[in-house]
Nucleic acid binder design. Structure first.
Lengths: 345, 345
DNA sequence: CTGTTAGCGCATTCAG
DNA sequence: CTGAATGCGCTAACAG
């Protein structure tokens, strides 16, 4: 209960025999104020540890210098990377970040938005949940004059700027890489049909096959729903036991790829000499697993920074109509799991 | 630029021909107000989507219902788990969380604290950086009447409640497990000498050795600084190439353990039949690596929830003097990497 | 160069 | 049961 009462502008004004507004302006080195006065006020403020009451400042200015950030899952390598970038960029620009997660549940996303609106964030960064089909809750922000920027998992239902990974190109490069390494029967463990990222990656996969003269074998395309190792393992089993097993797997995410690799290793298939595997996202675990898993780097940190920079610009310019879309280029990270030259090892 | 001007209490008061204070009280179903009036006001507010200006409310009440959370690193499985728990608990209690990271750099931690103070959080959750040696910046919060709760990486320099993992016991159990599995020459890859968690784990390691009648061989204790795979790999190499190589490794964290395993696999040592390995933290990668890495689960999510609950209690009770310490029990997760019975596989 | 004044939106005390 | 009045701390327009 040590609490000492806070020093206010009024206190320092009274103490120094100036008016409150003079004190206020002096602290901001307003050109109207005499050098001497400024010095005096600043000195006093410094000495007595004056700290402005930001609640009052924010109230007055109707701004909080805080932005909201909602992701589906916080405990997720990619998203935590994005958040990290967002926080670093925000800090640089003097903004704070309020973080929340939806757990891929629409109701949770709605609540989070409500709280964010309530706590008066100046703008919102959001990656929507799998369940989000329409964007009324997001439009509310825009209607209230607070810009939003969507990233990674987006919906076109909401008119706003977007920062996305070039999923199509990333997938294309991954499959191209597999083809160049000599694999000829490339399967794809894809994600949910309703999720844009999954569709884009699947299209990249198909386009690459097509461009290099391979047909699409639909049996080699499997729909993952939970996107975890078990699905990877099970689908790998299904395909490898079929009459026409593939010789490579391009997986929607690293976790699925790990499951595939586990099945392959458990059943004596050599990676990469017999079967190649490529994941997506380049999680830490792609690096430490053996053989090292080739994967597509999404530059999450950069995405977080760019999205935040964009949002803060919109806030500053009071711009609510932008629909600018930034595509983050992916990068193919080649490790052992896809290097067929290892055939004779 | 669609912005519609916000409805205020004044507007609805004028519209309904009542006073502002009546409107205000009606919305809160104050007992003084007539049922009928309450109904009227609420109906109007509802119909016109009245939303209180929280900036004004917060300013008036001098509260933000926001708490700050600072961790060394956001992209880190354990910390993101803690954050996840903190956010979920905070949400349940109507609080928001402002997240920041120090990158284990003192200067960044100071800045983060400054911003948090500035944005008037009601309280602070913090896990300090490796560089933090004294806690003046934390005491500032307490002096301003805002409670803080330290978690995981803590300093006794600051009088505050703490939520910590029982590192000693976790380490003890891990080493006990290795001993029970039949390993007799257990090395320890420890963390920095200045970090409490590292010391506690090292003590648990030593105590277990002692309790089971093993002496401490100082050559088998290595100081990791960066706490990454490379250090694990390099120290494993050093030890395994020495005159008296250990037959098991207890590592300060999973990443180091992965490095150790990599060295062992690369050089033909069988895990776990020849050499056992146990990590700490139970990251996702412990589960997916092969052989599966035995590890000590720290229950980060639970830690986040408990710390948050504690902090909110302190805020509500305006309690700044508590020094309560909660110890979170660890759990030994046994996977293949430490099961010597596999000797004859 | 400085002071006076007004007001942001709301909660609350004090009178009726 | 209701209204008038006050002030939270700060900013900014306006007046000297």
């Amino acid at each position: 209960m040590t609490e000492r009462k806070k020093l206010t502008l009024k206190d320092i004004a009274k103490e120094l025999g100036v008016s409150i507004s003079t004190a206020s302006r002096a602290l901001k080195s307003h050109p109207d104020i005499a050098e001497e006065t400024i010095r005096l006020v600043k000195e006093y403020a410094e000495k007595h540890h004056y700290v402005p009451n930001y609640l009052a400042v924010n109230f007055r200015k109707n701004k909080t210098f805080t932005i909201g950030l909602i992701v589906p899952e916080l405990v997720h390598h990619f998203f935590s990377t994005v958040i990290s970038g967002a926080i670093d960029e925000a800090k640089k620009q003097g903004y704070n970040i309020l973080v929340s997660q939806s757990n891929d549940i629409l109701a949770d996303e709605l609540t989070a938005c409500q709280t964010m609106l309530g706590s008066s964030v100046d703008g919102l960064l959001i990656s929507i949940s799998n369940e989000t089909m329409e964007g009324e809750h997001l439009n509310e922000f825009i209607n209230e004059g607070r810009p939003i920027v969507q990233f990674d998992k987006i919906t076109d239902q909401v008119k706003s700027p977007k920062v996305i990974v070039d999923d199509f190109e990333g997938a294309y490069q991954a499959v191209k890489h597999l083809i160049e390494m000599g694999y000829k029967k490339i399967a794809h463990m894809r994600g949910r049909l309703e999720v844009k990222n999954a569709n884009d990656r699947c299209e990249g996969y198909q386009k690459a096959l097509q461009d290099f003269g391979y047909g699409l074998n639909k049996e080699w395309v499997k729909n993952c729903v939970l996107i975890n190792e078990k699905e990877g393992y099970d689908f790998a089993k299904e395909l490898m036991e079929s009459d026409n097993p593939p010789d490579a797997f391009f997986c929607i995410t690293d976790l699925v790829a790990i499951g595939v690799m586990k099945y392959l290793k458990d059943h004596g298939f050599k990676i990469p000499s017999q079967v190649g595997v490529v994941g997506f996202s380049n999680w830490k675990l792609a690096e430490v697993v053996s053989p090292g898993l080739s994967s597509v780097e999404q530059h999450g940190y950069d995405m977080g920074k760019r999205a935040t920079r964009l949002l803060i610009d919109l806030i500053k310019n009071h711009n609510l109509d932008s629909e600018e879309t930034i595509q983050i280029k992916t990068k193919m990270i080649v490790r052992e799991s896809s290097q067929m030259k290892g055939k004779n090892l």
